[in-house]
Amino acid sequence: ATLVRVAKTASTLGIAIEGGANTRQPLPRIVTIQRGGSAHNCGQLKVGQIILEVNGVSLRGREHRDAARLIAEAFKTKDRDYVDFLVTEFNVAL
């Protein structure tokens, strides 16, 4: 697993995710990275990566909407000017 710190360099995070608990893809997977978004500017997130944690919070067992909300809130909060993602290239069953 790799820790990627995405600085909030744009007004959007700019990733699309699929998956979550009780789906075929139990942990969220990055399916799109939008050009010009913070994630794209960061340059370290890639399509296909699985998101294990956001700011140290595990996504295991979270349904899609819950995981998406957690990521959205991490990006929205003014408490910090970055979001930490723990990602892996492998679709591990955790």
């Binding site: 959007t12 995070l13 700019g14 990733i15 699309a16 995710i17 699929e18 998956g19 979550g20 009780n22 789906t23 075929r24 893809q25 399916v31 799109t32 939008q34 899609h64 909407r65 998406a68 990521i71 959205a72 990006f75």
Partner: peptide, 16 residues
Amino acid sequence: VREKRLTLPPSEITML
């Protein structure tokens, strides 16, 4: 006819 579900449903996609 009895249908057996072998796979979990697909997930929706959310743009963030």
